[in-house]
Nucleic acid binder design. Structure first.
Lengths: 195, 195
DNA sequence: TTAAATAATGAATAGTTATTCATGGGGTAT
DNA sequence: ATACCCCATGAATAACTATTCATTATTTAA
């Protein structure tokens, strides 16, 4: 098992993502991944410890990438509300642009409870980001001080994930990113008439 | 494979729920389920077509039960807001009282994309319920007329599921049902200060 | 050019486990 | 008591596929 991330390593990762998204982790076979990558079955074991390791590396790689973009997006916002808007838009946009990733994060990750801790789940860092944003909003006066932050952030993340999940289930046939603003409006002002 | 739902049938279903929740569908073995139910491996095949069928029957059974309670709960509400409150409270309460079910609905269902259609997913009927409630709220004037209903209902469901998911992940150690009212308040008025 | 090191191959292995089915027990009616 | 039927049993089967490793190919260094 070699260490340095070569071109072949990335090729295998992408192929695996493709096959996992199509068949799901358990039904996907090593042979399918190898064939998709254009290499022999045994070659995968020069780059990865085992099948699970491929999934781990895939998700960690994708998570890191998405996190960087999310952080950058949040930085751009001048106040809490803007930061939230950028974050949600970034989230939807990244998943829209990488459907394999969207499928895998939606279907596979929760399934691996035993390696869940090894996987840098989007959720963890995401929730921290949201905490910061909400607390800033409270300081700025744009968000209610009596918010139960632990609940509010979970509610925000749950709602985006739900929207993405529906989109994936529908085959990704409509534009996801354009739901960002309507969604943030719901977060901010709710469904109640502002009477 | 006999048809009438005997005591043994239910016994096996419950045992399966227990084992699936503990190990996950794929790692759970027929032997484990049989032993938990106190019968021989072969006996399972007198009552179920195969392993997947056990999961299907389990989820359908649970879904039916929960739906009935949800409908009853919604009926009790006099207006849209009350109905929403009852629905969310019922949802949280049912999952809190059946942790195995909560785990299975959280982790396993999304995984089976090929049989997803056979499974009466909580989501489908749930979303219909929410549509009705929101539309009623709009008529009553308690909810904004400019809501994008398809998004709003997805956002509500996503948020509850997220809250339940976190609870499951934390090992179900805190009271879930008491989050119902704070959650509905978020739905209704959002995180913004009502300035 | 040659030797050594490194990388890739894919057929064989080995472990797992869902499912089957020939057998046996126990209740019921004749 | 006997024949019959319904369940239940669990050892044997059969299929699947992740992983290994002896062999071959390719690259690098001298």
């Amino acid at each position: 098992m070699q260490k340095n991330k070569s071109e072949k390593y990335n090729n295998i990762l992408n192929s695996a993502g493709c096959v996992f998204a199509k068949y799901g982790f358990h039904k996907a076979t090593i042979s399918q991944i190898a064939s998709q990558a254009g290499v022999a079955d045994g070659t995968l074991y020069l780059y990865f410890k085992n099948k699970e390791d491929i999934l781990c590396q895939y998700t960690n790689y994708k998570s890191d990438m998405v996190f960087k973009k999310m952080h950058a997006a949040v930085e751009k916002g001048k106040n809490a509300e803007e930061k939230l808007r950028h974050l949600i838009r970034c989230h939807l946009s990244e998943f829209q642009n990488d459907k394999d990733m969207a499928v895998i994060f939606r279907s596979e990750i929760r399934y691996f409870r035993d390696i869940e801790s090894q996987i840098k789940d989007i959720s963890k860092v995401y929730l921290e980001l949201l905490s910061e944003i909400i607390e800033q909003g409270q300081v700025e006066g744009s968000m209610r001080k009596d918010l139960f932050v632990a609940l509010a952030k979970r509610y925000i993340l749950g709602a985006v994930e739900g929207v993405i999940s529906t989109w994936v289930f529908a085959g990704g046939r409509y534009d996801l990113e354009s739901l960002a603003d309507p969604l943030v409006d719901l977060y901010l002002t709710g469904v109640k008439g502002s009477i």
